[in-house]
């Protein structure tokens, strides 16, 4: 519980148009933590999460993951490190025309030889593992349906299954429930939490719903204007702090 798994130092991201999305982020994350990042939209939450696995290239800084700097990794090294980082997106990002189980199998691509993976030659063991993970997210009956036939909540659970199948040590979830209704949101968050507890994944989730954040997080990080504004356990997150995180931002207070 005490071992530091991810250490972010002086992370900066400036877009070509000069926007400073991340100004100076320092964050140390311990194994098994369930961290929720909150903040107004445009504060840099998404950029921050996407910088961790370099879907968005940081301008400067260090991201030490398992003792190695992701920012300095070359392409091959980056691929190897990325398979240790599961990612869940707001838009699910499944290959809609492929069966659900194949989408879960995609989590294994990083471990396969290029051509085996490219041609989709998964062996019995891999398929069985994918099927059992689908079962764990309650979708065993949907395993062979086309991904786009599933509801939004179910698709997000497939995406969780895909991330689990990577056997990562950390999971990044970028607004995983922003396009779901409240009921499916809860189901998705429950599965995410459960998977992380069972597997001991460290989890970083971006949320804009503060109530969900309080309910699921061990630790909350508030980001405002590209900087960390609050960092602490849920009980320290007072209403005043929430107010000031969201203050000045044009958008209404989230409920």
């Amino acid at each position: 519980m005490m071992e530091t798994i991810l250490e972010i130092r002086q992370l900066k991201k400036t877009y070509p148009d000069g926007t400073e999305a991340l100004k100076n982020i320092n964050l140390s994350i311990k194994r098994g933590e369930f961290i929720v990042i909150i903040g107004p939209s445009g504060a840099g939450k998404s950029t921050f999460l996407r910088s961790i696995n370099r879907l968005s290239e940081p301008t400067s800084g260090e991201i030490i993951f398992h003792g190695e700097d992701i920012v300095k990794a070359n392409r091959a090294k980056l691929r190897k490190m990325r398979r240790n980082i599961g990612m869940i997106f707001q838009g699910f990002n499944l290959v809609k025309r492929l069966p659900t189980v194949r989408n879960v199998l995609h989590g294994k691509l990083g471990y396969m030889s290029t051509w085996k993976g490219a041609l989709g030659l998964f062996n019995q063991e891999e398929v069985e593992e994918a099927l059992s993970i689908l079962e764990r997210v309650g979708l065993e009956d949907q395993a062979f349906k086309r991904a786009d036939e599933l509801s939004g909540g179910q698709q997000q659970r497939v995406a969780i299954a895909r991330a689990i199948n990577q056997s990562p040590s950390i999971i990044l979830a970028d607004e995983p429930i922003a396009s779901l209704d409240p009921n499916s949101s809860r189901v998705v968050m429950d599965y995410l939490q459960k998977a992380c507890q069972e597997e001991g994944f460290t989890t970083i989730v971006n949320l804009h719903q503060v109530d969900f954040a309080k309910e699921y997080a061990d630790r909350i990080v508030g980001i405002k204007n590209g900087e960390i504004y609050f960092d602490g356990p849920v009980k320290e997150l007072s209403d005043d702090v929430i107010q000031s995180i969201y203050a000045k931002g044009k958008e209404a207070m989230p409920v």
């Binding site: 990325r82 691509l109 993976g117």
Partner: peptide, 10 residues
């Protein structure tokens, strides 16, 4: 593309 790349796919 992002989802598969973030899973370490080539």
């Amino acid at each position: 593309v992002e989802a598969l790349e973030s899973a370490g796919a080539s």
